[in-house]
């Protein structure tokens, strides 16, 4: 994640808006024409030192190396699976990149179409060919629970400052939650707790632009799950 400056005014810019004409450098999603910096995408203007860029408000998820994502198996080959990770391109998962020993042609015994897996992006080359792996700690096939999809640009709000938001939701709802960088979120827990967690995430998605969100989501969860969870917390 790009480091951001302390922001004062958050200004929405559209493609073609002039960001700066005093000689600053173009950051992400910005371009230079005749020495002036223009916005290259719909988003929020972001100034950091002598660089001005745009943080996108939406758009398709573009994988970057090291992202952890949730994927759905779409197709099976004799030595690989094709995984939909919500990117413009399918991500091939090779048998060498899974934690099992898979014989040639036995791929469907391990993962089948429709299965959901946690993945890490191994590499994205300049022609946007993606390679993913499951050989990392915590990566596995997902069974049970439910998956929520949202815009990938709002994932950072779900996680919160150094994980504060997601930690708070996990503690209060007693759910297992995994947030994929591609905007897919997996939630597993008791029926009621899980549905409250889903609603909390929907609130974050809807109000991603507003302030004091962590506090409001916390109040929401405490209202919805009053007694038993607070009791449990006091133990």
């Amino acid at each position: 994640m790009e480091k951001r400056s302390a922001r004062n005014a958050r200004e929405v810019v559209v493609p073609g808006d002039l960001l700066d004409d005093s000689g600053m450098n173009a950051g992400s999603n910005a371009y230079v024409h005749n020495g002036k910096v223009y916005a290259g995408i719909l988003g929020v203007k972001n100034v950091y030192h002598d660089t001005v860029g745009v943080i996108p408000l939406g758009g398709r998820y573009m994988p970057t190396t090291g992202d952890t994502v949730i994927g759905v198996i779409e197709d099976i080959g004799p030595s690989n699976w094709l995984v939909n990770i919500n990117a413009p391109y399918p991500a091939p998962l090779h048998v060498n990149e899974v934690p099992w020993k898979v014989e040639f042609g036995d791929t469907s015994k391990y993962l089948n179409v429709g299965n959901v897996v946690m993945l890490k992006i191994l590499m994205v080359d300049e022609s946007k060919k993606i390679q993913v792996t499951m050989k990392d700690s915590g990566l596995r096939r997902i069974e049970g629970g439910q998956m929520v999809e949202m815009s990938h640009s709002k994932v950072s709000r779900v996680i919160g400052k150094s994980g504060s938001m997601i930690q708070m939701i996990k503690n209060l709802t007693d759910c297992r939650i995994f947030v994929g960088q591609n905007g897919r979120i997996w939630i597993d827990g008791d029926d009621e707790n899980a549905s409250v967690a889903v609603e909390a995430i929907k609130i974050i998605e809807k109000e991603a632009q507003s302030s004091n969100l962590t506090e409001r989501v916390e109040n929401f969860i405490k209202n919805r799950l009053p007694q038993k969870d607070n009791d449990r917390e006091e133990y």
Binding site: V14, P15, G16, N29, Y31, H33, Y38, G40, I41, L42, G43, P56, L57, G58, G59, R60, S153
Partner: peptide, 11 residues
């Protein structure tokens, strides 16, 4: 196109 978050030079 701009609403879809597609990078573009201008509208």
């Amino acid at each position: 196109l701009a609403d879809a978050g597609i990078p573009m030079r201008d509208i």
